Amino acid sequence: MSKLVFVHLYNDRSGSPKVLSQVINATCRRGYSAELLTSYNPDGVLNGLPISQKNIFYRRSENKIITLIYYIISQLLLFLNCLRYFRQDVVFYVNTLMPFGAAVAAWIMRKPVIYHIHETSIKPKILKSFLRFIVNLTATKIIFVSDFLKNEESFFNKEQFVVYNAINVDSVLISPEKKDDKFNVLMACSLKTYKGVLEYISIAKHFVENKEFDFYLVLNADSKEINVWFNDVSVPPNVKLFSRQTDMTSFYAKSHLLLNLSRPDEWIETFGLTILEGMSFGLPVIVPPVGGPVEIVENEREGYLISCYETQRVVDSIKKMAADSELYNYFSNNAIAKANFFSLSEFEKNIIDIIDL
Results as ranks from 00 to 15, higher is better:
R29N: 15
S14N: 04
K179I: 10
F342S: 02
A204N: 03
R30Q: 11
V315D: 11
N151W: 00
K54W: 06
M187G: 07
D247H: 06
P124A: 08
I296S: 01
A221C: 12
A34N: 03
S223Q: 12
P289E: 00
F57G: 02
R263D: 13
A34Q: 04
K211E: 14
N227Y: 03
T246M: 12
I73V: 13
E119K: 03
T274E: 12
K64H: 14
L344P: 08
S39I: 05
Y252S: 07
D232I: 08
I351E: 04
F207L: 10
D353Y: 15
I114S: 03
N168Y: 05
E35K: 10
N238G: 04
L186D: 01
A188L: 11
A26E: 06
E300N: 15
S345F: 10
L9M: 14
N329V: 04
F100H: 08
V145E: 00
N95C: 06
F92D: 00
Y194F: 12
E177N: 15
A339G: 07
M321C: 09
V135Q: 13
E159S: 12
A253D: 07
R84E: 12
N95F: 04
H116P: 02
A26G: 08
V235I: 15
F213G: 02
Q245G: 01
E212G: 03
R244E: 14
L4N: 02
K320R: 14
S345L: 08
K349N: 13
Q245D: 00
S345I: 12
T38A: 09
I203M: 05
L344G: 03
Q53S: 14
G303I: 01
N63E: 05
N157V: 06
Q22R: 14
P176N: 11
V94Y: 01
G272K: 01
E277C: 08
P42L: 06
T249Y: 13
S343G: 15
V233C: 05
N329T: 08
I354T: 11
T138K: 05
P293Y: 00
T138A: 12
I108R: 03
R60N: 13
S255A: 02
F57A: 06
Y10H: 11
V94Q: 02
I226L: 03
I69V: 15
E153D: 13
L20I: 08
I306D: 12
G278Y: 06
I268R: 01
I174G: 04
D247C: 07
E300C: 08
D324F: 06
L173I: 14
N227P: 09
P289D: 06
W229A: 05
K141S: 11
N260G: 09
S190E: 09
V197A: 03
E300G: 05
K150G: 04
L49P: 01
E346A: 14
E295A: 00
E300T: 12
A139Q: 10
F251G: 04
P237Y: 15
R110N: 11
R30C: 09
K125V: 14
E35M: 07
S2Y: 11
N168W: 07
F86M: 11
K224A: 07
W267N: 15
I24C: 01
D356I: 04
P17H: 03
Q312T: 15
Y93V: 15
I306N: 09
Q53N: 12
H116G: 05
R29F: 12
F281E: 00
Y164A: 10
L259V: 10
K211S: 13
F100M: 07
I142L: 10
I226P: 14
S190M: 09
